[in-house]
Design a protein around this nucleic acid. Sequence first.
RNA 1: GCAGAGGUGGCAGAGUGGUCGAAUGCGCACGACUCGAAAUCGUGUUAUGUAGGAAUACAUACGGAGGUUCGAAUCCUCUCCUCUGCGCCA
Length: 438
Amino acid sequence: MLAGCNLMIDIDLIRTNPELVRENIRKKFQDKKLPLVDEILELDGQNRALQREGDERRAKRNEYAKKIGALMREGKKEEAEEVKSLSKQNNDAIAEIEAKTAEVAEQLKKDMMMIPNIIADDVPIGRDDSQNVQWNTYLEAKEKPFEVPYHLDILESLGGIDLDSARRTSGNGFYYLLGDVARLHSAVLTYARDFMIDKGFTYCIPPYMIRSSVVSGVMSFEEMDGMMYKIEGEDLYLIGTSEHSMIGRFMNTTLDEAQLPLTLTSYSPCFRKEKGAHGIEERGIYRIHQFEKQEMIVVCKPDQSDYWYEKLWSYTVELFVSMQIPVRTLVCCSGDLADLKYKSLDVEAWSPRQKKYFEVGSCSNLTDAQARRLGIRYKDSATGKNVFAHTLNNTVVAPPRMLIAFLENHLQADGSVFIPEVLRKYMGGKEYIYPVKK
RNA sequence: GCAGAGGUGGCAGAGUGGUCGAAUGCGCACGACUCGAAAUCGUGUUAUGUAGGAAUACAUACGGAGGUUCGAAUCCUCUCCUCUGCGCCA
């Protein structure tokens, strides 16, 4: 039996409109997956035929069992034995069919997992991240009238970081934040938390470790291998983002329609191996094994997800603007879009040192793909049917990476760093933080 | 961590090898009664898959995985979770 969930897209879409699915694959420049569509149609046919055959055989088995029961009660032992042998033969056939079904279903599922979610009509077509499209900019991206040092040098001048000790205690990719910088780090998170609460989101502190069953629900094996730290001797993994435990919370549940939309904002530390393409930065805090993040999650009805998508990314923009950090929005093109996503947009902050923008957040609408995979449904009162919800997620803010933008943009000629109004109440009223004297 | 108890439908809770997709109660929906409501009575009310235009039929599911059996909610093995007590800790 091929369950409706655990897949990214509805198999019915392939049955009824394979060309749409093919076109979607072409748009994402994944042409090597095109043959999968026909393979799926073939396997699906086989699978259904096998299921029908199996169902008939199992119906027969039930029939035999009832008959034997009746005969035994009547004391007709010999007749019962005859039926038993018939049933045994039938059971052999069942075993054979079930083995075949399992084989076909497994391959079918494997293929289905490769089929990407249907992307939004307005996703720009492009091969890779070089073809992402700038959407808008907010606040003027100004160059500084002086040379802006590398963020690590700013951090050091403020007495705000100790990487040497971190390397000794934990290795490369870890950091100690100190003094005003550490306070600033917390201030940003606390401000972001309150900002989202003011937007009506429910604040949530989730588990920082999750079971493997949840991990495999929220990511592929390759991603898991490249990102997740495993706890020795336990079936637990450190989360790479609070999205993992936040979405995992709704795994295999049928939500109450009246609860939707669920709008949540969560805080957590995030742990990542960063085993992939880029690796850990030698110097600095751009890419590290441990960071903290305020996240937002929405679980909603299908017709609400477009609305929430626009809301979510605009909240991040608003937050950065309120801290007087210039940002731009960058629309993710088809080829750069992960298979689970319907559309996605990066929020990038301005770096006066590099004179370009860099990613500080990412907003995604996964439509029903993630919910389908995890079995997140709600009962639709209009139709009385259980339907998959839509899920979205977005970064509110993720220091310490975000601190790079903060420090570069608010650095003054004298080496001090300006604290915007909105953060001051979390910084003991300070307007500036100053370099420490050596 | 140790010991005991337990995991069954939206909830509570029966059921210890066949007549059990599952008593009963609550909840919910519809109907009757009523000027209206409460109470009462009646009917209905799990999910997923397959076939079908549909009504419906069949299959599967009693935490999960495996086993025994013609037949498993029920017996066996492993595993996960929850509760209670003790221990240990912020």
